[in-house]
Amino acid sequence: MARRLSVVDVERCVDCLLCAFACSRRFGEGGLARSAIAVRSVGGMERGFVVVVCRACSDPSCAAACPVGAIQKAEVGVRVDLERCIGCGMCARACPIGAVFWDEERQKPVICVHCGLCASFCPHGVLAFEEVAGG
């Protein structure tokens, strides 16, 4: 069965960013340049946080917006064909939740592939890697 990354309880988030750093380690690097998940405050730390990440839409706006067909819907979420991608940024503008991140160095989108690595490094139960029926 396919699995999807899910923000299950954002009220437990402490802004540690371990999820975002875990995402970068997929590429064997540190920092946040190619992280597909981000945390920001709601408007001041005392009010809590927002976790921004792809929610695996059933009809993804990013794929619909791509003029060259480089973004295809996958079993869970989407896959980007980086060779086909022309780096126009239409996908990033199309995503209403801001979950298409931008790799400034390569001028390409970065979108969560629902691998679940970040959830395994979330110490406080904010993220979960859940089974989904039918993808």
Partner: peptide, 10 residues
């Protein structure tokens, strides 16, 4: 939000 390269990733 830059990137930090690592000499020995594994």
């Amino acid at each position: 939000r830059g990137r930090v390269p690592v000499a020995q990733p594994p």
